[in-house]
Amino acid sequence: MTENAVLRTEDLSKFYGRTGKQVTALENVSIQVEPTTFKVIRGPSGSGKSTLLLAAGGLLHPDAGRVLVREEDLYAFSPGQRTVFRGQNIGFVFQQFYLVPYLSVLENVKMPGVALDIPDLDERAAGLVERFRLGHRVDHFPSELSTGERQRVALARALVAEPGILLADEPTGNLDMENEQIIVDCLREYARNGGAVLMATHGLRTDGFDQVYQLKDGKLQE
């Protein structure tokens, strides 16, 4: 274990359901993601990838184990403190994008700024929009965008607060090959520039990633 990991999980376990009918979602999962690395969690549907990302992002309280982001134990925070900490340090990208339908591209990107104090928000948002080749779409609404463009907007929104780590849950699940490549390249570029990426995928590609964790039935495979 390296001390400079942005994200570390220690023996993370999560169970769903009641005693007797309990389903193990995660069992003693320990991973870590360092800056400038792009790591992948791979596994079939129901293997616990999303649960791991949600728990790692401070959205799902684990039943056992710890999640450390920049050496801060996420679940030692109060819910309010955790929300702010998450906003400032963790970015999320989902397969479903979750764009706000009534906000334009630029407004969606700037939305975290309503909740957090983000310095130079306008410049950052404008820069991200340009970087993700959305400059011609700033005033468009999500319904007017292609699927790939929507995911790029979601990615820009996740990065506007300049988080230390980006958690991406099947971000290319709804995309064609071309858009998938664009998103993966964006994530890779983000990692190269000092960020850390942990992406869940059920795809088979393993090349070009710093590490691939194989998850099956909630357990890491050696």
């Binding site: 959205l59 819910p79 702010v84 998450r86 309503v114 909740a115 929104r157 607060a161």
Partner: peptide
């Protein structure tokens, strides 16, 4: 619900 979930994710507190 989805919009609320993503707002919570990016840092919107309960009060907001």
């Amino acid at each position: 619900q989805g919009e609320i979930a993503v707002m919570r994710t990016v840092g919107f507190g309960e009060g907001k």
